[in-house]
Design a protein around this nucleic acid. Structure first.
Lengths: 341, 341
DNA sequence: CTGTTAGCGCTTTCAC
DNA sequence: GTGAAAGCGCTAACAG
């Protein structure tokens, strides 16, 4: 049987209350007795039963998720996953509140973060927009002892406790390697379709992609990046236009979300053009396109994993506990038509 | 505040003990009162606090892991992950026992399974060897109410509750697609190195691989499968020999574990031969080979995920609870040199 | 068949 | 500063 607070109390010759005060670093214990208790804890090898503690405390973890009101499939599924997590709330002792903010709007994000300093939830998860003000607001929360996790897009240089998302530079590099290899030794032009260069994750993907292309596939030339704002109409127009004007295009990297426009343009193109296409984010549409050969590779981040991981990490941080690092690494999923879920 | 057993007791006009009996489907309750209680549970919307229940029961989950004494890196890491899980045992209320059995030995596996019928652990996880006797032994356990999860290699046609492993047919197909595409339109021979065709996962990988090659890459010819028994020396000898005899080999698929021999042979080969190599299982050695270009793609299954998933599923089944299906899907990880962990 | 009571491991008043 | 005692939500004797 593993040791309990009673065992420590007995060993240290104090009462349960004192043991508890030491365990929870509450004041009102003489230095000398604190040391006695800490000693007992160590020699007995006590580890606290978190479940029992939570039961006694009636603890719930009020968590705040700040999500952009961005209208693409990926953000939709992220939102849906948070709602599902909320459905499991009572079993997991969480109480999840969602705050929606306009996308790519640092000021709005800061306005959402500010009041949390007062509200003091157990943890905060946010899809970060990369700006100094946001960094400062996040830092204030962390300094005030409120754990913060960035979701999907990181905020490097801030004090956030954890990032629950993929390594986007690696994603871009991987896209480049796959596209380059799939194209064999062919020479030609590559179309790059992004959402917006204002978002850190898109910038990082492009950076990784361009780096590997330059280093290892010099026969492939990147065309200037098209920013489709993740808007199907715009993407469709841009891609159709580019394809009709440039016969040398042999590959496409779509690093943003919302591929419907791209897929439409690809299906509408002339039979002559043989294209290899790498895109991000697995959705109903992109999966269908992968199956029918319109897209060759899809890189994906699993929104469900990201949300569950963020919750696990926030709860652990709130309790001052560690996490299983390997479990919290968000992997870059790579799909070809053969390994779809 | 969410409702408790007290609320149900009050609503149904019975005592806590009766509520508990109903909740746990224990005998000794009149049909009529049982219905009253069940009604109260439903209308109040009660959900049991599993943590509190476990605390009261002093519940631990005795779990048995049956692992092959197979000397390759993958099995080593699987073993290590089970040990790590055992280190977390007290926090997770598990009590994990490991039984080691000779690899590929159905009789030994059956002998390990048999006594568990008496011992009645909360759950059993095993790396299955595919044989009728094993199937029968597993079925007996499941029928006796003991949850069984297959790990890494499945036992189709049995009553096992769950399979914690990757889809190996899909893995083989994916390997074929990547190898085929990486080779562009080239024609040539492909070397296939397996561990043993007696293991289901290897057979399934080959099946998937051969199918896609036949369907979509007719210019690539599969050579007869080499069975290297996951032995470095053997693999080295086989591959070196094959490469020296056949200049037309342009690709290799290594679908077994233990790639050290393969890597050695590849590094020793003459400069003339340009090979594209797809291998399974990420290890220290294979990762290094991926980085230096000796291997082009590594397909991997995360042993840690498999073990943690098996434990979660067994605990849930033991309590008659559901699991988050998406969380328990073991993905096929695909690594190129750019997205190594 | 049903109810009373003590207790799981921990926290939290409220006295001393 | 420290301790005694009650209680978190649930289960398990033991009575009745």
């Amino acid at each position: 049987m593993r040791p309990t607070v009673h065992d420590i109390a007995a060993a240290a010759g104090v009462s349960l209350a004192t043991v508890d005060r030491v365990l929870n670093q509450r004041p009102g214990v003489r230095e000398i007795t604190r040391l006695r208790v800490e000693d007992a804890i160590r020699t007995i090898g006590y580890v606290r039963d978190v479940a029992a503690a939570n039961l006694a405390k009636g603890r719930v973890y009020p968590l705040v998720f700040i999500l952009p009101t961005n209208d693409n499939s990926f953000m939709h599924s992220l939102h849906a996953e948070v709602l599902q997590a909320r459905a499991r709330a009572s079993a997991e002792r969480t109480d999840i509140r969602i705050i929606e903010v306009p996308a790519f709007d640092p000021a709005a994000l800061v306005r959402a973060l500010e009041p949390l300093l007062e509200e003091r939830p157990s943890g905060v998860a946010l899809v970060a927009t990369d700006a100094p003000d946001v960094r400062a607001a996040v830092d204030r929360l962390v300094i005030a002892g409120i754990p913060v996790v960035t979701l999907v897009s990181d905020l490097t240089g801030s004090r956030r406790d954890h990032y629950a998302g993929v390594d986007n530079v690696a994603a871009g590099r991987t896209a480049a390697r796959l596209l380059g290899r799939f194209l064999g030794g062919r020479a030609g032009h590559l179309l790059v379709l992004a959402g917006s260069m204002l978002v850190r994750d898109h910038r990082e993907r492009l950076e990784g992609f361009a780096a590997v292309m330059a280093e290892e596939f010099p026969r492939l030339t990147l065309l200037p990046v098209l920013e489709g704002r993740d808007d199907p109409e715009l993407a469709n127009a841009f891609v159709s236009d580019a394809l009709s004007k440039d016969d040398a295009i042999i590959g496409i990297y779509s690093l943003g979300a919302g591929n419907r426009g791209l897929i439409r343009a690809l299906k509408a193109r002339g039979q002559g053009q043989d294209l290899t296409v790498v895109a991000h984010e697995l959705t109903e549409y992109s999966a269908a396109a992968l199956k029918d050969g319109t897209i060759d590779v899809i890189l994906n981040q699993d929104a469900g994993h990201e949300v569950r991981s963020a919750i696990r990490v926030l709860k652990a941080k709130a309790d001052g506990l560690g996490v299983i690092a390997a479990q919290e690494r968000i992997r870059l999923d790579i799909f070809v038509k053969d390994n779809l879920p």
